[in-house]
Design a protein around this nucleic acid. Sequence first.
DNA 1: AGCCATGCACCG
DNA 2: CGGTGCATGGCT
Length: 139
Amino acid sequence: MAERTIAKVLSANDSGETGAHQAGILVPRDERLLSFFPRLDPSRYNPRCHLNFLDDSGTFWEFAFIYYNNSLFDGTRNEYRLTRMTKYIRQANLVAGDEITLTRNDEDRYHISHKRKQLTNRAKGGALKLGTGWRIIEI
DNA sequence: AGCCATGCACCG
DNA sequence: CGGTGCATGGCT
């Protein structure tokens, strides 16, 4: 299998600028994105797995990929999240608009890096329209 | 659907 | 006891 890369532009909540302490970014239920991550069993309640990401400086960061799926049981939640990223985001000094890039090797090794915000997506009124932020670099 | 927000458990 | 992450509610 070829190497795969996905990327997400961080929202204010993702970077922690909103004061949130949920420390997790949302992963849309898109097959291209979900297939990047390990498969989580939908028949389980809030299944998760932890992933070790290597950054450009050779440091390992353990993130958690969680499927909050209580809507399949007794609740209303149905979304995937990548959590436990606060330390990485801090050491990299990331803010909303910056982009993180996630890569997976043939050997299921994960790598993370980041780019500074690009100035191209400013909407009128000064508000920043970020959309979902996710994109797929390579399949 | 995606982002914002938060009470509480846990842990240093 | 303050910071962190979980789980989930709320708002747009």
